[in-house]
Design a protein around this nucleic acid. Structure first.
Length: 748
DNA sequence: AAGATAGTCGTTTTT
DNA sequence: CGACTATCTT
């Protein structure tokens, strides 16, 4: 019994959670408490000991990454891939249901998924059509409104406007937007969920089928569920179905996008009693880090209540640094990273976390100057990049001519003399005919409804799509994509442009072909183009070379959720930054900021650094915000405050400032003239270290020794071979340019 | 039909 | 301040 691989490795709480027979189980899983393990083991236990079949189980997550991990771990533990088990994201599962029951859901068989970019375009068009002033109703806000309503399960007819013109207009826009979607057979992300919820309500026999199939529903990150998601789950589980929900109210950080922390807070009451298991033993962090996390989060009201503990070591104290300004703060961080690397830490073991993306800039510059390779999370994902979306829109048109969003996007890309007025004409005609733009375009071409130039251009475009569709009919997906990328003219378009950007676009298009081929290989039996397009829409593609490159990780606190790093720098801890200015005066929002801080602290395994800048340049103005209240909430006994006096004098130049910092906290301003940002060399923002590494005789950041100049760090390499110029920052004499063949450098 | 330029705005992100 | 957009200009 003790050798049972399923249960023997679990602690008591985990064991209880895995083997509970309660029809409603709430697992309150603290950070680093083994929640995925519990989910995975519970699923396997249900199959083995409660004789469920894989098809009786539905496991829901938020991200594709989490779903993939769970699926894989279940497979490993069961030794067979759990084929019939549904493991996926809310959206993925909703999508699957809608594909299977499209008719009952009131959708066309070939409906397309609209990503937020497409959605915004459709909304802009709707605004134009209704002649709505886009300064009073900014498209982004309209989008937010629509998605919000959908997340709350509301259709336009459910919303009251109480005679308010603004609200009335929003509802109008929602309605017309929805009509546009219907006309083009388009379904946005929120619609996937709302539709499948409506499917449950509208078709009891379908609901009954799934209720009897899914005897057990398990949900991960339950604190992030919104209203529709929760309603959908509740209806599906019904009276009979078992529910296991796993989550942590203290890690609810997505309230601003519709997540309802109440879902987890009131779950027990809501379902008429649930067994609650708390996973409080933490396997990730030192007790010092946990004590800090507990101290912060305990200030929040209305918690379900949980306190992390560990059997592990106390570890090092937390280091707190008060930067003189944001540049100084960044320099401190890059310097400490440098030492950590010297002490044998891997770059990928180190993360810098911040509240908002704008903060990454200074950090990047400091890392670049210190020649430390880094990687920034965020920005556009693979399938969202403009060139990829253009290619995808051509593919979309191939399988669905009526996809207006796709039509509009590429009808004049590459430019083929179809100006705004021609497109407007097509749009109007479509509107009048109550048909898609494709139909309208056909009509216009057949009836000579356009000026000669536009007429020819449009005819050519329509012909191109038809030809491509026919000629690639029997080809593999990969070949099809390759041909579309070529013949659409997209490849030539980017080839004619110059610069790194265009080069990257060409490479991305090539990578798209690779991605399609990969999809073909991995997918079950001969996937169709439509399958791939769904995949592209639903998985915007992590395609960011994963942890292949060993680099310091920079990301927002939100993106860091779920991850862990041996060394964490949590920076920008100032009032107004973190907690953000917009949140600090509203209790609920402040509480969410505090949870975000809790999330940040609990990412650290061994060593945590906290830092802030006494003065920060923000929007072109110097601000003195003062240290974040979150710092004060951590017991001082857990922290060491670094106060390095500016003692080292160095030659005045624009070189890296080495080990001298501006004054510590309490020191007046202006005392550290050496750290003024004006002396900072301007570094090209887009230049990433990884690209510079190619063919360089030395790795950037490589430590080298020179007979005369002593030890230094390689900053840059120009050229290769014996005449290559090596740019080195020497500890003693500052920056030097040396020629490879004479330098006689020794690697250290 | 692309390029300059004025104007705006300024958390957090997944699907 | 600087990134992004919308509008104007050539």
């Amino acid at each position: 019994m003790t050798q049972d691989p399923l249960l023997s490795i679990l602690n008591d709480a985990q064991h209880q959670a895995v083997t509970s027979d309660a029809p409603r189980l709430l697992v309150l899983a603290g950070a680093g408490s083994g929640k995925t393990r519990v989910l995975v083991h519970r699923i396997v236990w249900l199959i083995r000991d409660r004789k469920l079949t894989p098809s009786n189980i539905l496991a829901v997550t938020f991200t594709n990454k989490a779903a993939a991990e769970m699926r894989e771990r279940i497979g490993t533990l069961m030794r067979v891939p759990p084929g019939a088990m549904w493991v996926g994201t809310f959206h993925g599962i909703a999508h699957r249901l809608l594909r299977m029951h499209w008719k009952d859901a009131g959708l066309p068989e070939n409906f397309q998924i609209l990503d937020s970019d497409d959605q915004l375009r459709v909304i802009k068009r709707t605004l134009k059509y209704l002649n709505v002033d886009d300064s009073r109703w900014p498209p982004k806000q309209v989008q937010w409104f629509i998605n919000n309503q959908k997340d709350e399960g509301r259709r336009p007819e459910h919303i009251e406007h109480f005679g308010d013109l603004h609200q009335k207009t929003l509802i109008d826009l929602y309605q017309h937007y929805q009509q546009a979607c219907t006309r083009g057979g388009m379904v946005d992300f929120a619609e996937l969920l709302l539709r499948s919820h409506e499917l449950w309500l509208k078709k009891p026999e379908i609901l009954a089928h799934y209720q009897s199939r899914f005897k057990h529903v398990l949900v991960d990150e339950f604190q992030d569920t919104n209203t529709v998601q929760y309603a959908w789950l509740r209806v599906l589980a019904g009276q009979q179905g078992h529910m296991t929900i796993v989550g942590d109210d203290d890690q609810s950080i997505y309230g601003w996008r519709g997540a309802k922390i109440e879902n987890i807070q009131h779950f027990g009451k809501d379902v008429g009693g649930a067994e609650i298991v708390k996973l409080e033993q933490n396997y990730r962090s030192t007790s010092t880090i946990l004590a800090a996390a507990n101290a912060v989060i305990t200030r929040n009201p209305d918690r379900l209540g949980k306190e992390l503990w560990t059997n592990g070591e106390e570890g090092e104290p937390i280091t707190l640094y008060a930067g003189f300004n944001e540049v100084d703060e960044a320099r401190f961080i890059s310097d400490r990273i440098d030492s950590a690397l010297l002490n044998g830490k891997q770059r990928k073991d180190i993360a810098i976390l911040y509240r908002s993306n704008a903060q990454s800039r200074v950090l990047e510059e400091a890392l670049l100057r210190a020649a430390i390779p880094y990687r920034i999370y965020g920005g556009h994902r693979f399938f969202e990049r403009a060139e990829i979306k253009n290619a995808l829109c051509y593919l979309r048109l191939l399988c669905h001519r009526d996809d207006d969003a796709a039509f509009e996007r590429v009808v004049n890309v590459p430019a083929r003399a179809l100006g705004d007025k021609s497109v407007e004409k097509i749009r109007e005609t479509a509107r009048a005919m109550n048909h898609s733009m494709w139909e309208a375009a056909l009509y216009l071409v057949n009836n000579k409804g356009l000026a000669a130039r536009a007429h020819n251009a449009l005819r050519q475009f329509l012909g191109l799509i038809e030809t491509l569709a026919q000629e690639t009919l029997d080809l593999s997906l990969g070949e099809q994509t390759e041909i579309v990328v070529e013949r659409s003219g997209l490849m030539d378009l980017y080839k004619s442009e110059k610069g790194e950007k265009a080069q990257a676009r060409i490479e991305n298009l090539q990578e798209l072909v690779t991605a399609v081929r990969q999809f073909e290989i991995e997918g079950e039996q001969a996937p169709t183009l439509a399958n791939f397009l769904d995949h592209a829409a639903l998985e915007s593609g992590d395609k960011q070379s994963e942890d292949a490159d060993n680099a310091v990780q920079l990301m927002t606190l939100h993106s860091a959720k779920g991850l862990e790093f041996p060394v964490v720098f949590l920076c920008g801890l100032e009032e107004g930054m973190f907690p953000s200015a917009q949140s600090k005066d509203e209790p609920d929002r402040l509480a969410e900021e505090r949870r975000l801080c809790y999330v940040g602290i609990t990412r650290a395994m061994k060593k945590l650094y906290l830092s802030y800048a006494e003065s920060r340049r923000l929007y072109g103005q110097e601000k003195m915000n003062g240290p974040s209240r979150f710092i004060r909430e951590i017991p001082p006994t857990l922290m060491d405050e670094v106060r390095i006096k500016s003692t080292i004098t160095r030659p005045v130049s624009n070189t890296y400032a080495g080990n001298s910092y501006g004054g510590g906290s309490g020191t007046g301003f202006g005392s550290g003239s050496s750290t003024r940002s004006g002396t900072t060399a301007k570094l090209p923002r887009k230049k990433r270290l990884r690209e510079d590494l190619i063919d360089a005789p030395y790795r950037l950041g490589q430590r080298v020794r020179h007979k005369k100049f002593g030890d230094g760090v390689v900053l840059d390499c120009e050229g290769s071979g014996p005449n290559a110029q090596i740019h080195i920052n020497f500890a003693d004499v500052g920056e030097k340019r040396l020629v490879m063949q004479y330098a006689k450098l020794e690697e250290i």
